[in-house]
């Protein structure tokens, strides 16, 4: 087995291929996105997997970027909040967060939006309780939870219940 202390990493981020050399294996995907690719939309809250502010999609599944060694994401596809909109057209979840006032300070919002976009794909929007449970990995210090649930429900295209 070939062990190295510096690595070459190929990664597709928001549809764009990157080749990053001389990568220390200690660097997390979160730090790589923020500090080498300057995609600072993904937030660093706790850096311990607890808050969800760093949520991104890895091969289409939502994950905590702070819990992933960047080097282990070799060859994978990452979507961050910067890659969610289709040009100038906001993703329905982004629009719903605006329409329903789903934030105050906005720090948790990129993570909330990425989580909500995935949750709708997963189909966990059967009831408000289900939305709350499946959004529980995203903490909001401003406690915008009621509006976040409304936004997710609206984005999922369900009538208010």
């Amino acid at each position: 087995m070939d062990f190295h202390d510096r690595h070459l990493l190929r990664l597709r981020v928001n549809g764009e291929d990157h080749s990053l050399s001389d990568l220390d294996p200690r660097v997390t995907l979160l730090d790589l996105l923020r500090e080498r690719l300057h995609l600072t939309g993904t937030k660093k809250g706790c850096n311990f997997g607890e808050c969800g502010a760093c949520t991104v999609h890895l091969d289409g599944r939502r994950v905590n970027a702070c819990m992933i060694l960047a080097v282990s994401a070799e060859g994978r596809e990452v979507t961050t909040i910067e890659g969610l909109a289709d040009g100038d057209a906001l993703h329905p979840v982004q629009q719903a967060f605006i329409d329903h006032d789903g934030f105050q300070c906005g720090f948790c919002t990129p993570g909330q939006v990425m989580s909500a976009a995935a949750l709708i794909e997963e189909g966990h929007t059967g009831s408000d309780a289900e939305i709350r449970e499946w959004m529980s990995g995203n903490l909001c210090r401003c406690s915008a939870y009621p509006q976040i649930v409304e936004a997710v429900r609206a984005a999922a295209g369900r009538a208010s219940q």
């Binding site: 087995m1 070939d2 062990f3 190295h4 202390d5 690595h7 220390d24 294996p25 200690r26 819990m67 992933i68 060694l69 080097v71 282990s72 070799e74």
Partner: peptide, 28 residues
């Protein structure tokens, strides 16, 4: 600091893992 390698086979994994100071990384 640590060095990192990706395992491709079960055989090499258990051979490399037996060395003290090695750790497996699954979900992390």
């Amino acid at each position: 600091p640590f060095v990192y390698a990706r395992a491709d086979s079960l055989g090499e994994t258990i051979a490399a893992g037996a060395a003290p100071d090695s750790a497996f990384l699954a979900g992390g």
